[in-house]
C-alpha cells in the first residue's frame, strides 16, 4: 500500500484502530450505551449532548438493532444486530472532513488508490425530531459512512452545530478486508490460536433473534410495554426539579430519555411483527418523537444541556 498502512486483519482491529485514531484526536472514547437502540445516534452522548453550548467530543462503538433487517444470518450484508462507530464533536471543527479522511487512511484505505466522494444526503430522524445536512461518503461507489452537521435535535436548534460521523462497521470492514459474506469475516486475528469469524459469534444469534423478532415476541406485551415506557417517561419529567431528599435541583432527563429509547425499540419490534398498519405507523413515530422532544426540553434545563449564557444568568441553577 502506498500509504504504508497495513490492511487490518480482523473486524476488531478496525475498531481498535478507529478508537486509537479518534482518541489521538482528543475524543473521549465512550463505551456503548447499555440499552437496545436502532443506531449510534440514539446514545445520549449524541442525542442529548448535541444540545446546549457545552463543547463535546466523543467516539464510541454502538451495537445497534433493526429487528426488520433480520435475515436469519443468511444475507451477506444484512443483520438485525450490527455495530456502528460514532463520532460526535461540538462545535464541528473546520477540518472535520480532513479528520474523517484521516480515519479512513488509519484503517487501511489508501486515498491515492480509491475514489472517495461526498454525495448529498440530508439526514432526518422522525423519531428524534432531528435533522441535519451532510453527505453519505462513497468509497469506490460504496457508502461507507454518514457525515452530518446537526441542525436540530428534539425540536431544538443546535447552536453550536455538532458534526456527526457514523461508520457502518461491518460493511466498511468487509470492504477493507475484501470479504464477501459478513459471516466469513475474521472477528479476531485469523492467526490467533482460537480464530473466530463473525459467523462463529453471530450466526446463531441472528437466527434466534430473527425468529424472535418476526414470530416470537409477544405482541400484547410489546404494546403494553410501549404504553408503560411512554407513561414512565412523562411521569419522570413531571417531577418538580427540586429533590426533597438532597435539596438539589435534579431533573431526570436521562432516565426519562431511557424510556424514550425503550419506546422506540418496542415500536421497531412491533413493526417487525407486522402489527403496525401504515396509518398507525405515523402515529407511533409521532408518539416517540413527542417523548424525545420532552426529554430534549428537560435536558436543556440541566447544567449539561443549557446555554452558557443561561448558566451565567442562573436560569438553570
Amino acid at each position: 500500500m502506498a500509504s504504508g498502512i497495513e490492511t487490518p486483519k480482523s473486524f476488531q482491529e478496525i475498531i481498535l484502530r478507529l478508537q486509537a485514531y479518534w482518541a489521538a484526536r482528543g475524543c473521549a472514547i465512550l463505551q456503548p450505551y447499555d440499552m437496545e437502540v436502532g443506531a449510534g445516534t440514539f446514545h445520549p452522548a449524541t442525542t442529548l449532548r448535541s444540545l446546549g453550548t457545552k463543547p463535546w467530543a466523543a467516539a464510541y462503538v454502538q451495537p445497534s438493532r433493526r429487528p426488520t433487517d433480520g435475515r436469519y444470518g443468511e444475507n451477506p450484508n444484512r443483520l438485525q444486530h450490527y455495530y456502528q462507530y460514532q463520532v460526535i464533536i461540538k462545535p464541528s471543527p473546520p477540518d472535520l472532513q480532513a479528520l474523517y479522511l484521516g480515519s479512513l487512511e488509519a484503517i487501511g484505505i489508501d486515498l491515492a488508490l480509491h475514489d472517495i466522494r461526498f454525495v448529498e444526503d440530508d439526514w432526518e430522524s422522525p423519531t428524534l425530531g432531528a435533522w441535519g445536512l451532510g453527505w453519505e461518503v462513497w468509497c469506490d461507489g460504496m457508502e461507507v459512512s454518514q457525515f452530518t452537521y446537526f441542525q436540530q435535535v428534539g425540536g431544538h436548534d443546535c447552536r453550536p452545530v455538532s458534526g456527526e460521523l457514523t461508520y457502518g462497521l461491518e460493511r466498511l470492514a468487509m470492504y477493507v478486508m475484501g470479504v464477501d459474506h459478513v459471516m466469513d469475516m475474521p472477528f479476531n486475528d485469523p492467526q490467533a490460536p482460537i480464530a473466530l469469524t463473525y459467523g462463529d459469534i453471530f450466526r446463531q444469534t441472528e437466527e434466534e433473534y430473527s425468529r424472535h423478532n418476526f414470530d416470537g415476541a409477544t405482541v400484547e406485551m410489546l404494546f403494553r410495554h410501549f404504553e408503560d415506557a411512554e407513561a414512565e417517561c412523562q411521569r419522570l419529567l413531571d417531577f418538580p426539579p427540586e429533590d426533597p431528599k438532597t435539596g438539589k435541583r435534579i431533573i431526570m432527563a436521562h432516565p426519562a430519555y431511557d424510556q424514550t429509547i425503550k419506546a422506540s425499540h418496542l415500536f421497531n419490534l412491533l413493526d417487525a411483527r407486522g402489527v403496525i398498519s401504515v396509518t398507525e405507523r405515523q402515529a407511533y413515530i409521532g408518539r416517540v418523537r413527542a417523548l424525545a422532544k420532552k426529554c430534549a426540553d428537560a435536558f436543556r434545563q440541566t447544567e449539561a444541556g443549557a446555554d452558557a449564557s443561561d448558566l451565567a444568568h442562573g436560569v438553570a441553577s
Binding site: P91, G132, L133, Y149, Q151, V161
Partner: peptide, 13 residues
Amino acid sequence: MRWGAGSLRWVRP
C-alpha cells in the same frame, strides 16, 4: 445550514 459555532448559512461549510 450552519456549522461550528457560527451563524452564517451556506449550503455546506
